[in-house]
Design a protein around this nucleic acid. Structure first.
Length: 428
DNA sequence: TCTGGGGTCCTAGGACCC
DNA sequence: TCTGGGGTCCTAGGACCC
């Protein structure tokens, strides 16, 4: 059996850990730049606030005092996520962390009759020790465990744990699950299903396999098998990410080349830092620019280009250098840019990088890597001591001066309750 | 006025090879 | 006049997820 552990309204719940006065009240958390609603308390959902709605459409409620909004605080959510995940990892032999707020547990070895008690204890432990409410769905496949967790979340009677251990329960749950709530059926497939008169998960599993194969690709067939109780999504135990991105929308549109160079340099430096922090190096550096797609009255331009390095790199100088080279080939004056980003891919372990290319300067590479390590160490020490936060005390001259969050709206940011030493002292 | 960010996988078509 | 068959790799675009 698989258990899917899912944190309820995760970002909102994280904010409430330090603001218990907000329990039972309508609360939302906003995306970067205070753009969209990305997490809602049950009370906010009940007000009709949709997932992903642009914030300006509901800001009126905040002004009237009917709704509390928070800018996103990823340092806080990341920290609480780590705490939840480590409790889970201690409880079972195998865990797959699926996202910041979800994990699959493999329950092999736990007798079926003990699973409900085991899961309820986990729910209570996480509630007591971290303060975040979680729901657990248990079923023979991951897709069914997802559905099971929806029931655990939706109906109070389950007390946070729903077990789907018989065919009877499975079919009943499938009947109550609209097809677009199924994991793997998204924005495009759902209308296609409805057009073919498949309205619920039960309608889908009742179709013959040949019908599924004729109408959908292998993912459709996998979803169908999973819903019928045959597990076909294996553990993806990849320990190394295949790509790393850093991108932001700007509070205002930018057209100045020099200003964009500062931003692209920052994004590239952040990618390089993330690469080093997991002991990786990358061959490919992609830069993209986007104009404002919501402004039909303005000229649109969405260029993207990838530069391939001869030898995988992770130093700030090399990644930023490649990103600026890429930027220069796509930047066109006369457009107003709303967003830019850098992605590094072709990721390999840093210690397997070899300088076998003719003309590759291994001595220079060693110096660059040593300099990057010094930059990381100094910046980490600066941040820990509170004299520079959120960004690098040490940075390249092509990066922006000041805080990296400058020029990005975050009007409703909560304090760094759990990761800033000053805040931790206050809370205690 | 104001509309996020970070990932993965699959597939079709083209380039290239023998 | 008549012009094969089979394979791999890469890429862009599309789909999905949170």
């Amino acid at each position: 059996m698989y258990a899917l552990v899912d944190c309820n309204n995760f970002f909102v719940s994280c904010e409430r850990v330090f603001r218990p006065d907000l329990d039972g009240k309508p609360v939302v958390v906003l995306s970067n730049n205070d753009g969209c609603v990305v997490s809602r308390s049950n009370e906010a959902k009940a007000m009709g606030i949709a997932m992903g709605v642009p914030f300006y459409k509901v800001k009126g409620y905040v002004d009237e005092g009917q709704l509390v909004a928070f800018s996103s605080n990823y340092a806080l959510y990341g920290d609480l996520s780590n705490r939840v995940m480590s409790l889970l990892a201690d409880a079972v032999p195998e865990i797959e962390i699926y996202s910041i707020d979800e994990a699959f547990l493999h329950l092999d070895g736990i007798p079926l009759e003990k699973i409900p008690g085991f899961c309820r204890e986990l729910v209570q432990k996480i509630g007591r020790w971290v303060g975040v409410p979680v729901s657990i769905g248990v079923a023979p496949t991951k897709t069914l465990a997802k559905i099971s967790s929806h029931f655990a979340k939706k109906y109070k009677g389950y007390k946070g744990v729903c077990l789907m251990d018989t065919d009877e329960k499975r079919l009943k749950a499938l009947k109550l699950t609209p097809i677009d709530d199924v994991w793997g059926i998204g924005r495009r497939l759902a209308p296609k299903m409805l057009a073919k008169n498949v309205r619920t998960a039960l309608d889908f599993v009742q179709r013959p396999k040949e019908w599924v194969a004729a109408n959908f690709n292998v993912n459709g067939i996998r979803t169908w098998e999973e819903l019928r109780g045959k597990a076909c999504l294996e553990a993806e135990m990849e320990d190394r990410r295949k790509s790393i991105s850093t991108s932001r929308s700007f509070a205002d549109m930018l057209d100045d080349e020099k200003e964009l160079i500062l931003r692209v340099s920052d994004f590239a430096a952040m990618c390089a830092h993330k690469l080093r922090s997991e002991g990786s190096a990358a061959y490919d550096v992609t830069v993209f620019l986007l104009t404002n797609r919501f402004r039909n009255d303005l000229a649109q331009y969405f260029p993207s280009v990838t530069v391939r390095l001869e030898v995988a790199a992770s130093s700030t100088q090399e990644i930023v250098g490649a990103a600026l080279k890429a930027f220069r080939t796509i930047y066109r004056p006369g457009y107003r840019y709303k967003k830019a980003g850098v992605t590094v891919s072709g990721i390999v372990p840093a210690d397997e990088v070899q300088g076998v290319i003719f003309g590759f300067d291994e001595d220079l590479r060693r110096k660059q890597d040593r300099l990057s390590k010094v930059i990381d160490d100094v910046n980490a020490a600066a941040e820990a001591s509170g004299c520079a936060s959120g960004n690098s005390l040490l940075r390249l001259a092509t990066q922006r001066p000041g805080h990296y969050a400058d020029g990005i709206r975050s009007e409703f940011r909560s304090p760094l309750y759990s990761t800033s030493i000053d805040e931790i002292i206050k809370v205690r």
